[in-house]
Design a protein around this nucleic acid. Structure first.
Lengths: 201, 201
DNA sequence: GGTATATGTAAACACTGTTGACCTGTCAAA
DNA sequence: TTTGACAGGTCAACAGTGTTTACATATACC
């Protein structure tokens, strides 16, 4: 039952459960970053890690498990942007969105954004967006309409991300950064308005 | 060089270039509609159409060509919603978005929306969204900032569509339909504001 | 009739993710 | 020390995928 490996007690053995897991994960991270999820095969990851293909499924269940693990470690949609003063929430979110629009952030984040549409990853991202974006937002906002407000915020944030994939978002990136950030912020602010006042036109 | 088929001049022969093309396309449409793009294999389409697999690639280049053709025929993102009185543009777009949010529209449309993330289809949807959504919007809007405005509109529209895939959009669908439509319309309206006025708070 | 050409067929290719059977080395108990 | 158990690793195969190539066939024209 106990682990018989790490006999030397060293920091980095090249074999054994944890060492192999780590090497696979590191290879996956590097390859996904440079080539995207869909373009990297299990065998390629295994070869790069100097490890047998079957071990990927042994340790991560399936290829998708690698990405799940990377997301868990890296926190691609960090709840961090939610935390902070309430009156600056939309500003933080807008800056985050525009930053993503400009392709900033970790190379891995960019790669995973690009791979988000893969059918194999759909359930992964679905759960991730819900648990790391919509639910934290709803909890942070509070109130009876928290979920609707959170979904609207998510719509704008995801929409901006999506238009980058489709278009490169050239025209938006060419604008003064503060201008587009301000506009996104205004959109987010509008998402948060109460739903009572029907027709303010 | 000329077409030797359709010798009888009948309406529906079961062999020959056009007949085969049509049968493949009809099968693809039916299967994609019911099972989505990624879950339907080339062989399955061919079997359903009673046709050899190789003919798919002969007549449509590749599997993706089937979907390109279906999109071309069906006009999934019709420029129709753009046409109309200018002061009702956002209303039309909002109604369209909310309608999609509720999963209305053709079954095929719904299926293709769901398949939009497939890596194999990325270039197809990229071109389609650009040519059938962003460019018509930009042309319709006019002005020096037309492209930025069109991209912002697209962000909201695509974002609303995306949140449906992720969440089922339960909370948004449970709301009074007019309320959510109004809110989306307001968001779209805000997208169209000039970028000059920097800080209206 | 002969022949070029369009259409349809069968089989393979080069992949993919995944799995099951099989070694192998190390540790614990007898 | 011998035995047995078991975690860790290897290999080959499975069942799929999209796509292509070489071949057979039927049609239409000269």
């Amino acid at each position: 039952m106990d682990r018989p490996d790490e006999t030397g007690g060293g920091a980095g053995p090249t074999r054994g459960r944890e060492a192999t897991r780590a090497r696979i994960l590191a290879s996956a991270k590097e390859l996904f970053t440079n080539e995207g999820y869909g373009s990297v095969s299990s065998r390629k990851i295994a070869a790069h890690a100097g490890v047998n293909v079957a071990l990927i499924n042994r340790y991560f269940g399936a290829k998708r498990g690698l990405l799940t693990e990377l997301l868990r470690e890296d926190g691609v949609y960090p709840g961090l942007i939610v935390d902070g003063p309430r009156d600056q929430l939309t500003r933080r979110l807008a800056e985050h969105a525009v930053s993503r629009l400009h392709g900033e952030g970790t190379a891995l984040q960019r790669a995973l954004d690009d791979s988000a549409g893969d059918p194999d990853l759909r359930s992964v991202y679905q759960g991730r967006i819900t648990s790391a974006m919509i639910e934290p937002l709803a909890a942070y906002l509070g109130g009876p309409e928290q979920r609707a407000h959170a979904l609207l915020l998510a719509s704008v944030l995801l929409g901006v991300a999506r238009v980058r994939l489709v278009e490169g978002a050239g025209a938006l990136c060419e604008m003064e950064r503060e201008t587009i950030t301000r506009r996104v912020q205004d959109l987010l602010e509008l998402c948060l308005k109460d739903f009572e006042d029907g027709d303010a036109a």
